[in-house]
């Protein structure tokens, strides 16, 4: 059983000093939020979250974390409403246990994984990633999970496999029925992007299992792409040989490309992507190519015209 009570481990034994400090920071923020009734505001009954122990990954950034309350209350999860505060207010009704993820398509061993199984499939790592939204704001988020490649290796993609498609959960009884996007939400990656170690199958955040508004119970996080590429509440993963349709690209192809790599040189047709506001900061900061992960991922796009394949 990977879901343990917090008393099961001594954090200082397994966490680096930086992370230990970061955790103190979020505990302080969390305590403050709880005192101020903030936990209620973000749709979390105090103490309801299950803790999810994980080891700090060397792929983490050492930048200061965005406050837990902000990470849990400022969300784009359109199925639960298009205001940033809607998901925290509305997503609580979604049942995330039991939960199954079907992995199929061009694979040797198609399988359905239960959420408990996913939690145990590989050692959980804490990955502190920058998150850059296409709306020109950003956060630093301590996700918990493991590389998506660990899951894909289990099903053994065939030689003909080129892309990976993600389907999100959609339940019109509890989610937005207006066709703001073509529900259910769909996302996709090239196979080499999906297999990149940075691409995280994400099960937790801030030391606990994912809150619903953050995409519970399982999502992906692709830190060098705009946030909407990181599909939430995934129920199906399909390995394909053709580029899958994706929700935002279908909605407005000239604004949201399939690749959607963070690129300060390629503006959104309606606003600049050159700078971003880190949540909590007053002044904007320059946006970095590939959200600062160029060293790790730029090679994936060698020879590609990134202005054309935005």
């Amino acid at each position: 059983m990977l879901i343990r009570q917090p008393t099961d481990i001594v954090p200082s034994e397994i966490t680096s000093p930086e992370l230990f400090r970061a955790r103190r920071q979020f505990l302080r923020l969390g305590a403050g939020a709880a005192l101020a009734g903030g936990a209620g505001l973000v749709g979390l009954p105090a103490g309801a979250a299950e803790s999810l122990p994980a080891r700090l990954s060397p792929l983490s950034t050492d930048e200061p974390l965005t406050g837990r309350k902000d990470v849990l209350s400022y969300n784009n999860y359109y199925e639960f409403g298009t205001d940033k505060s809607d998901p925290a207010a509305n997503a609580g009704v979604m049942k995330t246990r039991p939960w199954e993820v079907r992995v199929e398509g061009l694979v040797a061993k198609p399988r359905t994984f239960g959420i408990e199984e996913l939690l145990k499939l590989a050692p959980l790592e804490e990955r502190i990633y920058r998150l850059r939204c296409v709306e020109a704001w950003s956060m630093v988020v301590p996700w918990i999970g493991y590389s998506l490649s660990a899951l894909l290796q289990q099903v053994e993609p065939l030689g003909s496999a080129r892309y990976v498609a993600f389907d999100s959960h959609y339940d019109p009884a509890i989610m937005l029925r207006r066709p703001v996007l073509d529900w259910p939400y769909k996302e996709g990656l090239r196979l080499d992007e999906a297999m990149h170690p940075l691409t995280l199958l994400t099960l937790g955040v801030y030391g606990e299992v994912l809150p619903n508004q953050n995409g519970a119970p399982v999502r992906i996080v692709v830190p060098w792409k705009y946030g909407y590429k990181s599909a939430k509440s995934i129920v199906r993963i399909r390995v394909t040989d053709t580029q899958p349709a994706t929700a935002w690209n279908t909605a407005a192809p000239e604004e949201y490309g399939f690749y959607s790599n963070v690129n300060p040189e390629v503006d959104h047709p309606r606003w600049s992507q050159a700078r971003e506001r880190r949540i909590g900061d007053f002044r904007k900061r320059p946006t970095l190519p590939f959200n600062g992960y160029a060293e790790q991922v730029a090679g994936l796009y060698q020879g590609m015209d990134l202005k054309r394949f935005y």
Binding site: T66, G67, D70, S73, Y74, K84, S85, W137, R277
Partner: peptide, 11 residues
Amino acid sequence: DRDALGANPIE
């Protein structure tokens, strides 16, 4: 003033 405008007060 009382920091009640959410995560992105400027927005």
